[in-house]
Write a protein that binds this DNA or RNA. Sequence first.
RNA 1: GCCGAAGUGGCGGAAUUGGUAGACGCGCUGGACUCAAAAUCCAGUGGGGGCAACCCCGUGGAGGUUCAAGUCCUCUCUUCGGUACCA
Length: 964
Amino acid sequence: MIKFYYNFIIFMVKKTDYNPNRIDAKWQKFWDKNKTYTTPDKKGDNFYALVEFPYPSGDGLHTGHLRSYTALDVISRKKRMEGKNVLYPMGFDAFGLPAENFAIKTNTAPEITTKKNIANYISQMKSVGLSFDWDRGFSTTDPDYYRWTQWIFIQMFKKGLAYKSVENINWCNSCKIGLANEEVVAGVCERCGGEVVKKEKEQWMLKITEYADRLIDGLDNIDFLESIKKQQKDWIGKSEGAEVDFKIKDTKETLKVFTTRPDTLFGATFMVLAPEHPNVHALEGKISNLVEVKKYISHAKKKTDEERGAEDKPKTGVELEGIKAINPVNNEEIPIFVADYIMMGYGTGAIMAVPGHDQRDYDFAKKYNLEIREVIEPLFSKNEGKDAFREDEKIIERDAAVCVVKHWKEDRYICLQWKNVDWHGLIVGGIKDGEDAVEAAKREIEEETGYASAKFVKELGGKIHAQFYQTLKKENRRAHFHGLYFELEDDKNVGISEKEQAIHDVKWIDKDQVESFLNVPDMKLMWRRLHECEAYSGDGIAVNSGEFDGLETLEFKQKITKWLEKNKVGKSATNYKLHDWIFSRQRYWGEPIPMIKCTECGWLPVPDDELPVTLPKVDDFKPGDDGESPLAKMISWVNTTCPKCGKFAKRETDVMPNWAGSNWYFIRFCDPKNSQELVDKEKAEMWLPVDWYNGGMEHTTLHLLYSRFVFKFLFDIGAVPKSIGDEPYKKRTAQGMILGEGGIKMSKSKGNVINPDDYVAKYGADTLRVYEMFMGPFDQSIAWDDKGVKGVHKFLNKAWSLQYKVGKSDVDQGTLHKSIKKVSEDIDNMRFNTAISQLMILSNELDKQSSIPKDIFEKFVLILSPFAPHLAEELWNSLGHKDSLAHEKWPKYDGGLAKDDSIVIGIQINGKVRDEIELPTDTEPSKEIEKQILSQDKVKKHIGDKKIVKFIHIKNKIISIVVK
RNA sequence: GCCGAAGUGGCGGAAUUGGUAGACGCGCUGGACUCAAAAUCCAGUGGGGGCAACCCCGUGGAGGUUCAAGUCCUCUCUUCGGUACCA
């Protein structure tokens, strides 16, 4: 009796409320002290998880950072428990404009602000229990780190990949800084939203274009989200075609153009130059309307890129009168225009205009009344399905008339809907021997619709071809459609035969409905020709192209390119949208570019033993109005001696862009303290490539592309071992953005920024972590919801109180094993939201028990721990374990126990669920089961006296009965 | 314009290969506990009809394939991202 009371009192006293603040602090201290997450360098079962290291801004960590960091933290924690040696590092990308702008405003040195911000970030990250290996941390602003950033630049210089060039760069008027194309968003500066203008500046450039093909090809063998691969490919923008030289009549000048369609050369009826094109200047003497031309050019230059690219802007241009170009394929003299729809930044800044087959050229030609010549007749080839064109079978050619027929009064047109095939088309009929197209068409119209008053109005352009396999007759068909337009004069209808009636219905379709009614591309195109407003830019068969007539596009391209090469007027060529990377910034807070200019010896790199070129302390952080870096004012720093001849020389005063430090940081985490080389080869081999890299979608064409480029370069020069390949990241995923409450973007100005610190203080780190993982699918944008946070907190409270139910009892293990399975798989696939919902299901079920067996509860704690590590550690501890659970074995599930013994499946009658039946799992279909089901009352009722046509039983899924 | 992703209750969202749509969470309603509130617990909760057993309708819209469609096919509308005269 006494003992009973004693136990009872102990039991009462032990029970405490969930107090996250106490638990969080306790375990964070424990992990720090015991170096729980410090990663040893060793060969073997390693796993490198990486998240984008942040810029340490004054605002501190935001919820978006945490979504990414928590996700890979969950993955890292699970991998550790699965026995992997996990590297999950963190550092800071601390060079950049905010610290510099702050310095200009307050005259506080960027070092000081940066140091303070980094300390704050570290304490914030620790306060949410991210399992980073802090021993490997660094900042890109550490001289020990940027020494190697500078070293990489020098290696690029030595290989000819870094060069100085005068560029018409994007210049932000408010930041006073040159921007890469990637940093100009919608015509304004990505950072400050300020106006971007064009400015000529001498800049350091990196030849990323040399790696363009490898950057495309490398994507094939790595596990990146498809959307990322596609965006990178589009950004690089490779297109293959030819360069063609057009002579300018009576001069020695030629105009070089790039085209992806050399097969349309015979259709080139004029040329167009970009306003900035240098040849305009060179030809000034011959241009008779020079004043007009100059006026147009200066007007065009004033426009921003955005204005020039504005939607639906009518095309403008002016002809260069007095000069003509000569089309090399047919020696025709064609006019030359300057127009701002041609951009200097793409291709050669000049085009051959083919108005028949390019929509922009077409619009321009229409406006200025220029010749439009058709040189490609469309060919529609069926390539898929059983009626796909078969290369090796014989081909039967057929001429046919296609008729667009207008109503006698209204703006409606005849279409045919076939009855036995899914075909919505126009009136089509074969042209018989001795018949012309119009006669054939009239005959068909009368036969198929009964209307006899069709009056021929006009032809609808040239022929359209279609090829497919006729499955019934077992032959390839190639049909040549002649498009004809008719108008009915009256409503007289002579009727149609029964045979025709059985084939199709005649439909009168309103003008604006016709296009969507027609369901085959060749008919749609024929219909659109009635309105004469577009150029056909697809593939087809050549016409009006001299000796090349009759060739199909692909073959024509090859032949004409050979012809151009033979006649020395062109060659095959590849063009990219990607430009070389402008690598200079006229600012202070960045890595100094380690170059010296000697008037005698030219540009020379700073010798290796003088690296790093440290950033000198300055008093005035303002850039000069002429765009000079603040460093230019540091005369004593700028003046130096030439490393080659020893005479007076000057240092480069530009600094690197903030991408410089971030494009190789993941390499340094493998060996962060190495003073001899960028990275020790053996250590690089242990960790690289990165197994899993998660970050934001916004870095797809910037950081992610740049760092792949730099890594390939380091691979080429042997700075990283060859054995690891030339791709830095095996797998790349991206999280969705977190929006403010109500679904609007978080911003200071809107005052809807969520500060994670507040939630850590109020609910604890685990609630914040679990909420961020639970709020929705990881890759989708989602709005913050305070109510959801409370719900998660309730769940953790429940998990906490479950510990007081631990005791001896028998509890069914089914849900536990199902949960282990689901949580394991969901974490691997970043389906964190459903993993947590499964944990909730499990906790709800355990809560229903009067007592929970200890081993079940332990496993629950273990699979909860990646999401809520502090709570899990505390529970683990109170279960009697002394050590951290960070390296405990991840529970395994028993496939048998994860399955239910029996399963309830629905019984459908004529497609509707009417009843259900509980069957042992994996019950095979049998006559007995069928009998049992048919004897159930509800089933009997619904079948009534109808006859059973079909009885379907899919194991573990459904019973479906069809009755009549 | 083009490319990509997505449209499911009051809300965030679940739903293997097509197989009982709405798991889990929020919110709401009712109840218990409380002097009261909060917290907690229990029950209910797609819409409509019916006392009820049940029935009808439901995954942006219109067609289609199938015994069976949120899921597959055709067309279409909307939203959100990316991109922009790319020759």
